[in-house]
Amino acid sequence: MPSVAEGVKLGIQECQHQFRGRRWNCTTIDDSLAIFGPVLDKGRKLRNWTKRRQAREQGSTPPAATRESAFVHAIASAGVAFAVTRSCAEGTSTICGCDSHHKGPPGEGWKWGGCSEDADFGVLVSREFADARENRPDARSAMNKHNNEAGRTTILDHMHLKCKCHGLSGSCEVKTCWWAQPDFRAIGDFLKDKYDSASEMVVEKHRESRGWVETLRAKYALFKPPTERDLVYYENSPNFCEPNPETGSFGTRDRTCNVTSHGIDGCDLLCCGRGHNTRTEKRKEKCHCIFHWCCYVSCQECIRIYDVHTCK
């Protein structure tokens, strides 16, 4: 469970990095680990709205079935799989270890060695954790399960061989290789691309023996249907410009913007046309650093002045 919690935190942190310059910046309501719970519910009345809004940096929480929610589920599920897999390889968990299944015939000049990371086990734990509550016959559960699996599949798709050379005088007569996960930033970058190209779906209802069941169908038949590696959603996103407890939006007031950018992080777009305020800040920074042989660095402390621009 510590690895599961660490994985959810990792997913949230990566989400906040990927969306740091957007109107929705992946700020959670109460900074809890309930990323698969009420924090994603659209239409839920947020308790202590004013208190939480003042306590948190300006940001927003994604409604239930938007592409933002799709990304959160995918990155959090991937984070759990990643953290559990890494924990197993590091030996911090007693119920798992290295992957011994990748023992096919080695290539010329290399052999299996080290500790191959058991991503299949990490994915299994993530599936048990993240999908446990998605057992309802409705569109919301179908969407969440699909996006959870898309995040986990990204981990498996990005596994790669890492090798270490062995030999006299730095030669590489023999290479020892093992399977390893990528840096989690690569997972975040990949899923961010999937967010940008997420597939819009429509909800269909049909009766089965257990009652009415909701399923998802691609909205546009002329487009290529989504695969298990794509993100899906069926509700349009709000613009996240103004605070709205109905949609979970905190708005963008007081958010720091980039006055020189013409992109979404620029003051024009991020501030939704309301304009921005400018103030100066004094910051202490290390400067005039000198390397002394051997072996330390000495620095002076400088005061530098910066202009900070925030949305009105």
Rank of each mutant, 00 (worst) to 15 (best):
R136D: 07
R136K: 14
R136F: 09
A139P: 01
A139F: 01
R140I: 13
M143R: 06
M143S: 10
K145V: 13
N148V: 03
E149D: 13
E149G: 05
G151T: 08
G151S: 10
R152E: 04
R152A: 00
T153P: 01
T153W: 05
T154V: 08
I155L: 15
L156P: 01
D157T: 05
D157S: 12
D157G: 10
L161E: 10
C163D: 06
C163M: 11
C163R: 02
C163T: 02
K164I: 08
K164P: 02
K164L: 09
K164T: 12
C165M: 05
H166Y: 11
S169I: 12
S171P: 11
V174M: 12
T176Q: 15
T176N: 10
T176M: 11
C177K: 00
C177H: 01
W179C: 05
Q181Y: 00
D183N: 15
R185Y: 07
A186L: 15
A186R: 15
I187G: 02
G188P: 01
G188Q: 04
G188S: 03
F190V: 09
K192H: 15
Y195H: 11
S197D: 11
A198V: 03
S199H: 14
S199G: 04
S199W: 00
M201K: 00
M201F: 09
V202E: 14
V203R: 00
E204G: 04
E204F: 11
K205G: 01
H206D: 05
S209E: 11
S209F: 07
R210G: 05
G211M: 08
G211Q: 03
T215N: 15
L216Q: 06
R217M: 14
A218H: 14
K219E: 07
K219F: 10
Y220K: 05
P225W: 06
P225D: 08
P226S: 12
P226L: 09
R229E: 07
Y233P: 01
Y233T: 04
E235P: 03
N236M: 04
N236I: 07
N236R: 14
N239Q: 05
N239P: 02
C241R: 01
T247F: 03
S249M: 02
S249A: 12
F250M: 12
C257E: 03
N258R: 09
N258Q: 14
N258P: 03
V259F: 04
V259I: 10
V259W: 08
T260M: 08
H262I: 12
G263H: 10
G263Y: 09
G263E: 14
I264T: 14
I264K: 15
L269M: 11
L269G: 03
L269Q: 12
